[in-house]
C-alpha cells in the first residue's frame, strides 16, 4: 500500500505516493534521480549515503522513506549554487581530498552538518565526527585538512 509523502528536497517541495517499506536513499536515487547520494553498503556502515535532514547528518540507506515527511532534506546536489561550488566542495577538490569520489558526497554532507554546528572544530573533533564515513582511497589525511580549511574559509566568509 502506498502512502502520501510530502517533503522538501533541496528547497523543492515534493509530494509523492510511496511504498513505506522503501528506504530514503532509494527514493532519492530512483524516484528523484538524485544519484549523487551513493550506496556503499546499505547497512549504515560506510556513510556514502549521508544526507542532511532538518540540519542533521543522517544515513539515508537505513532510513524509512516516511521519515522524510515534512522534513527539509539537503543532498549533495543542493549544495552548489548556480554552478558555484560550496567552499567545502572547493576545498575537497583543491586539497586532494577526493580520489575515487564514491565516498565524497557523503563526506561533504557530513562535513557540512559538522561545520554548521561547530564552525571551529579541532582535528580530533573532525576525526570523531566523520568517522562514520569510510574512505578506502585517501587515508583520510587530506580529507581532514580539507575540512579544516573549509571551516576556516566559512568563518572568514561569515566575518566579511
Amino acid at each position: 500500500m502506498k502512502e502520501r509523502l510530502v517533503t522538501t528536497v533541496n528547497g523543492r517541495r515534493i509530494e509523492r505516493y510511496v511504498d513505506p517499506s522503501m528506504r530514503l536513499v532509494d527514493f532519492l536515487r530512483d524516484e528523484l534521480l538524485l544519484t549523487g547520494t551513493k550506496i556503499g553498503c546499505k547497512q549504515g556502515e560506510c556513510g556514502a549515503c549521508t544526507i542532511i535532514m532538518n540540519g542533521t547528518a543522517v544515513l539515508s540507506c537505513i532510513m524509512p522513506v516516511m521519515k522524510a515527511m515534512d522534513a527539509e532534506i539537503l543532498t549533495i546536489e543542493g549544495l552548489e549554487k548556480d554552478g558555484t561550488l560550496h567552499p567545502i566542495q572547493d576545498e575537497f577538490i583543491k586539497g586532494g581530498a577526493i580520489q575515487c569520489g564514491f565516498c565524497t558526497p557523503g563526506f561533504i554532507m557530513g562535513t557540512k552538518a559538522l561545520l554548521d554546528e561547530n564552525p571551529s572544530p579541532t582535528s580530533e573533533e573532525v576525526r570523531e565526527e566523520l568517522s562514520g564515513h569510510i574512505c578506502r582511497c585517501t587515508g583520510y589525511k587530506k580529507i581532514e585538512e580539507a575540512v579544516l580549511k573549509a571551516a576556516e574559509r566559512l568563518r572568514e566568509e561569515k566575518d566579511d
Partner: peptide, 12 residues
Amino acid sequence: CKTVGSSLIQNV
C-alpha cells in the same frame, strides 16, 4: 552513547 556505531548512527 558516543561509541554506538558512528555519529551518523547516533544522530538517529
